[in-house]
């Protein structure tokens, strides 16, 4: 705080009568309306990167399933590898959902 302004020259007391008491409420809602879409895009819970990775994992699983079913139906190694890809995809989606939930709740609460 600036103590110089409190000098007893009368100006401080006179100027203090000019404090605004309130600010129009529409101003706050106007600002928040213009800002909220920007925040939502910034912290969007759905990540494009995660969707792409998940799609690639599922595609790999489908390709291995196809190969294992039609060309190597008795290959245990291929079957295990296929299962591993599927488990990886499931683990990935669980991780992303776990990450998404707090963001989603936060957004719902701040509206």
């Amino acid at each position: 705080m600036n103590k110089d302004s409190h000098k007893e020259d009368g100006f401080y007391e006179l100027m203090q009568t000019q404090h605004l008491l309130e600010i129009p409420s529409f101003l706050e809602s106007n600002i928040m309306k213009k800002i909220e879409p920007k925040i939502e895009t910034k912290s969007s819970p759905i990540k494009i990167q995660a969707i792409i990775i998940f799609s690639l994992q599922i595609c790999t699983y489908v390709i291995f399933s196809f190969i294992s079913a039609y060309y190597f139906p008795h290959s245990i190694l291929l079957n295990d590898f296929k299962k591993m890809v599927l488990l990886g995809a499931i683990a990935h989606i669980i991780y992303e959902i776990n990450d998404m939930i707090p963001h989603y709740i936060n957004q719902k609460l701040s509206v």
Partner: peptide, 24 residues
């Protein structure tokens, strides 16, 4: 900066009067 709207609203309420007074 992490995208918390409620914090921005709080900051606005803290300084809106000073800002309006200066603009006036």
């Amino acid at each position: 900066l992490q995208g918390d709207t409620a914090s921005f609203r709080y900051l606005y309420r803290l300084y809106a009067l000073s800002a309006l007074q200066l603009a006036m």
